[in-house]
Amino acid sequence: MIEVEHLQKVYSTKGSLLNRSQVRAVRDVSFRIPEGGAISFIGESGCGKTTVGRILAGLEAPSAGIVRLDGVNIHQVAAGERRNLLRKIQLIHQDPYQALNPAYSIEQALSAPLRIMAKQKGDTARTWIRDRMEEVLTMVGLDPASVLYKYPHMLSGGQRQRIVIARALTVEPTVLVADEAVSMIDVSLRLGVLRLLRDLREKLNISLLFITHDVAAARYLGKGGRISVIYKGLIVEQGPTEGVISRPQHPYTQALLSAVPVLKGLERMGADRFILAKEMNAQSAAETGCLFADRCPFAQERCFSEAPTLIDGEYQYACHFPEVRQVAAVAME
């Protein structure tokens, strides 16, 4: 189980010595993923969702907040133990081509982490590494004999992403962080990779954090899980996946759902669908009111002066004037 409490990340941009501005990439994010559970972070680019994933994977240090893995605060243990702890949290990159060293074959890519695992287990039998290699490759739906000696550039995008997932599985993680894990893959192969991640979650009881801007993919992968809508580093709406998608309360969630293309011939457009024309302005630091107020089509005076807080409950949202709107497309038949 992974618990995150009041995570914050502030970057200071490189200006002149005197004029250093600060960017608050993550303002306040808390969530927990139970074993085998899933949570999807949705939001547009620049909303801070990727930073949350990188902090979890130990690639960046938070400015404030606590990350607990099975009850242990990962930032309060000795460096050696932290390496072992962080190994339990594996990040699946957006671009599988970047994530594999072009100089090494799949066999070489998998054997490096497996050697560490073999040492840890004290199981030094040569065949153990081999067997495990075959096992993880089969688990991700690849034929070991046909991919093992290939190089990353000889594989398709979908296969490469499966290799990246297989490599993550070699260290027996308990949490997978999938950052836009399918956006660089051919469409016909995307669903296959999403399906694989879902199966792994169920079969190996791995917790999954899925970071995406694609609501439909989040819905597919996060079946039975929760969804968090994040805007400018702040969670604006949170709740069970199906519920948030069918009954969104926050206008930003509604904007994201409206943006999903409607499949003419299979779906009807949602009655209240609206397209957000205004782009996110990272500089407009109206820190007093609701962060979304400057783009919100339903904003009222109060939104600019007073920041809404996340209300408690099964469904949480931070909006002064919540209202369910029918924005998601509806399946015909």
Partner: peptide, 16 residues
Amino acid sequence: AIPRISGDIDRAVPLQ
């Protein structure tokens, strides 16, 4: 193979 935001999720089937 298109994941959708309405209807039964498991109707989506990956392409081989």
